[in-house]
Amino acid sequence: MTALLEADGVGCAAGGRELLADVHLEVRAGEILALLGPNGAGKSTLLSVLAGDRRPARGEVRIDGRPLARYRPLELARRRALLPQDHEVSFPFPAAEVVRMGRAPWAGARSAAEDERAVAAALAATECAHLAERPFTALSGGERARVALARILAQDTALLLLDEPTAALDLRHQELVLRIARQRAAAGRGVVVVLHDLTLAAAHADRIALLDAGRTVATGPTGEVLDAALLSRVYRHPVEVLAHPRGGAPIVLPERPREAD
């Protein structure tokens, strides 16, 4: 079986600075791949390259075995969706209308009833149904993030690229978003998610790609990559990895100097 998405020796630079170098990555159907790394490691740049926004100077990205450069924009829109970090909408479109925009690539290819079903399902899954008629511009940060996610879900693609989808969200909605990602993966989609919370990644991702200074320093199953020594080196801060008392999932904590000990 070919991978949904492959990055093969991808490198790119901007303003004389190397942003990515020799990145190899593979996303298979049915898995969540977490993209981790310190600030400036190149996570968002890599996501741009994977989405086709930025053409890599070296290497190649393939979706379904075909290089990105050989896709037309509409074909690509039916295969991959990207949730950006910031959610701006220029005009006060109602939230439901924003989600409906996610159906644009399927215009003419699917029935209107199917479009409406997809929109309603996406709104319900992200717990946004009650926001449907509210103008997007009047929503809170967390509500916008969820409506934006609903739009990505409505796009109904085999590949989902999520750039820090939990950044604006409270604990309950962070779990909700990753649960949705899990459901999508279980339904045979591939999910790439950029996260900063290592424990969250540990709990939900199947595999982790750890980036540092534009290079993949480790790629593998969650338990292998979340190694205290490796993380301490990459994040340049001492880190300890504990096992959850129930189930044993890794919990990653930065070491903190103790005051009264």
């Binding site: 989405a51 926004d53 924009p73 690509l76 829109a77 950006p84 220029s90 925009m101």
Partner: peptide
Amino acid sequence: ARRLDLLALGERSARHLGVD
């Protein structure tokens, strides 16, 4: 008209929805 609606999401997101 429809593509202008999508552009309200920003250039990047409009492109991801297939707009040139």
